[in-house]
């Protein structure tokens, strides 16, 4: 009875740890759907009053533009660019840059205020990626605005993949969550490669599986603390001593026979 209990206690403890780990991982597989495009009336013209051509990039009210513009609708964005080109002709590149700043750095600043980039909000990130990736297609179709569309696409792809990398650094179990893996796969597919933190145990497992013995030995030796080396040596000596005792006993028994 006592022997049974001795085995039961560690088994229950390990099961409890595994249970906590399994239940704390996110298994929700419901992916956020694309946001619908809802048309609404507004005009960028109202925001351009009093702004001079020379100081357009500095004076433009990016925050007010984002509050009123329909950034989900590409036609609406194109209309805004057309108005800018009409009002400030001669520098279409600069006008494109203005829309690019609004839909990248300014939009990011708004999300930052709402703390979206301080936590793992999978639905928000998924919908943001869905919106951003459309710009890649627009860039391929509409060559004249390829710099504008490409800049938006690459900016958000970079931001999201960097955010995922940072999150996995702070919470290594996050990379096993379904929604995280979904977003990481999307980023990787589009070549915004997410560098997730590879833990020491994972590195050891990888090197064992791929038979990287010299690297494994070198890294283990170099990274071990003095205490670990002492423990390793003591353990090694005890093991050898144990084997010696066994061999000695076998020899003695054979001699007695």
């Amino acid at each position: 009875m006592r022997k049974k209990l001795t085995w039961l206690v560690p088994l229950v403890c390990i099961s409890a740890v595994v249970f906590v780990f399994i239940t704390s991982a996110g298994y929700d597989e419901k992916i956020a759907q694309e946001k619908p495009i809802v048309p609404h009336q507004y005009s960028i013209r109202l925001l351009l009053d009093g702004i001079t051509n020379e100081h357009l990039l500095e004076q433009f009210p990016y925050g007010r533009y984002l509050d009123s513009a329909n950034i989900q609708d590409i036609q609406s964005i194109k209309n805004d660019l057309a108005v800018l080109n009409e009002k400030f002709p001669g520098d279409s590149m600069r006008n494109m840059q203005l829309i690019s700043i609004a839909l990248t750095d300014s939009l990011y600043a708004q999300y930052e205020k709402k703390h979206y980039f301080q936590i793992f909000d999978a639905d928000f990130l998924t919908q943001l990626f869905q919106w951003a990736e459309k710009f890649n297609a627009y860039a391929e179709i509409e060559q004249s605005n390829t710099l504008l569309y490409g800049s938006i696409y690459n900016y958000w792809g970079s931001k999201i993949s960097n955010h995922l990398g940072e999150l996995s650094k702070n919470n290594s179990s996050l990379k096993y969550e379904y929604k995280f893996k979904y977003l990481k796969s999307k980023c990787d597919e589009k070549r915004f490669s997410v560098a997730t933190k590879v833990g020491q145990v994972e590195k050891v497992a990888y090197n064992l599986l791929s038979s990287q013995w010299s690297h494994l030995l070198n890294a283990s030796w170099n990274q071990a603390t003095y205490m670990q080396l002492v423990v390793f040596f003591v353990f090694g000596i005890l093991t050898i001593y144990g084997y010696l005792l066994i061999i000695k006993k076998i020899i003695k028994r054979n001699e007695n026979q």
Partner: peptide
């Protein structure tokens, strides 16, 4: 990006002979 060279990419922005390898 990964210890497995078969699927790993260079970390950060990378272009190889004009081909985009990593946009991040």
């Amino acid at each position: 990006t990964d210890c497995n060279a078969r699927k790993a990419l260079p970390v950060g922005f990378c272009v190889d002979n004009g081909t985009i390898v990593n946009r991040q």
